[in-house]
Design a protein around this nucleic acid. Structure first.
Lengths: 197, 197
DNA sequence: AATTTAAGATGACGCTCATCCTCTTAATTT
DNA sequence: AAATTAAGAGGATGAGCGTCATCTTAAATT
């Protein structure tokens, strides 16, 4: 039965939200259109009223996942003085809460390898997300613009790399990797308010 | 027709070598048993005389890929003084030669996300490879053991993270990310909140 | 109110895949 | 040399997938 415009829009959002989680959790190839539609409480048939293809959905889902992640980032950085922006970010990004939550975590840490093997359009969307993450982080730093961006990019790369490696390893190895990058962040083993040496 | 023991061993190695490349290039789900056998110049039927399952092959292929990568690493580090081990590694790992060669490049940069979604046995093998990479890098550094390992792990995480992000992005974004980590390779020795000199 | 449109359900199509089975034949064992 | 074993070829099986076509029915348009 035909649905109203608002109902359709609601369905659209439900599909994107479900896809954003499913793709991160199970990967691109591991997620079927039917899976996503079921997770959105719909049947698979209506899918092509909303998206031209699975890739089209993937692009929308990436956009959504990055939006969510930018929200988490902003929230975590909001109250931090700029000298602690990078280590605050590192601490949060590599903490158990985000590391264990693949479906709700960073799309970079969950989907980089899958996107590598996708179309240029998908990579373009992914790249937009990456730049937005770097820009957001950089905005919380001090110094000349180019340098802020570079420092943000380096820290982000290290955090994402550590999380990806840790997730793909046995617990012992994961501990070594996460421990190494978390120890690097001043304040990790300090009380709130303390400043790094 | 039945093959001799040596012929079988040769076939076995050919399968592992083909798989090590295919998995890195196309991902785990993107690589079929038939693909691998064809790349090894065999038919798919004989596969189960060599491996119990695709996962079993994956474990062997991961071992092989890490071996290859450790060779590249050792070779690149061999002539470097220890103060330049980390930035030498970083420059090589994030250089166009390795970044563009997904099939022959680092298994961490190519397969982390796929392994994340695999069995514990696969993760254990991956973790072994990660620790071997870190240990090899650390062996080329100076200082107390625990600290050498931590510095190696941090640099490796940053390098792998940057390569994964770059590969999954549009060329412009890739340039930003790789440029940031390459511009200041020695920066991986610094604490995260520090400004570059 | 009559007509047109389109959202979503259902089912089908063609393809791919991991795994298994059988057959042939040559290597290995006796 | 005869008997046994097993590597690899070829084919089959059963499941899952992306996408498409059809149908129903209610929303949107006239």
């Amino acid at each position: 039965m035909r649905q109203s415009r608002e109902a359709k829009a609601e369905t659209h959002q439900a599909i994107v939200a479900a896809a954003a989680r499913r793709f991160r959790e199970r990967g691109i190839e591991g997620t079927s259109v039917g899976d996503v539609m079921q997770a959105a409480n719909r049947t698979h048939g209506g899918f092509y009223r909303h998206f031209e293809s699975k890739d089209d959905l993937l692009i929308a889902a990436l956009g959504r996942a990055f939006e969510e992640m930018l929200g988490v980032l902003d929230q975590g950085l909001a109250e931090l003085p700029s000298q602690h922006a990078l280590d605050g970010f590192m601490r949060r990004y590599t903490g158990p809460e985000l590391v264990q939550d693949v479906a709700g975590g960073c799309p970079v840490a969950a989907l980089s390898n899958d996107v590598l093997r996708s179309t240029e359009a998908v990579k373009a969307e992914f790249g937009r997300g990456v730049r937005a993450m770097i820009a957001t982080l950089a905005a919380h730093l001090d110094g000349p613009e180019a340098e802020r961006e570079a420092r943000a990019a380096r820290t982000f790369a290290m955090a994402a790399g550590a999380v990806m490696m840790a997730r793909a390893s046995d617990p012992e190895t994961a501990g070594i990797v996460l421990g190494a990058v978390r120890a690097e962040a001043p304040g990790t083993d300090r009380r709130i308010g303390d400043h790094p040496a």
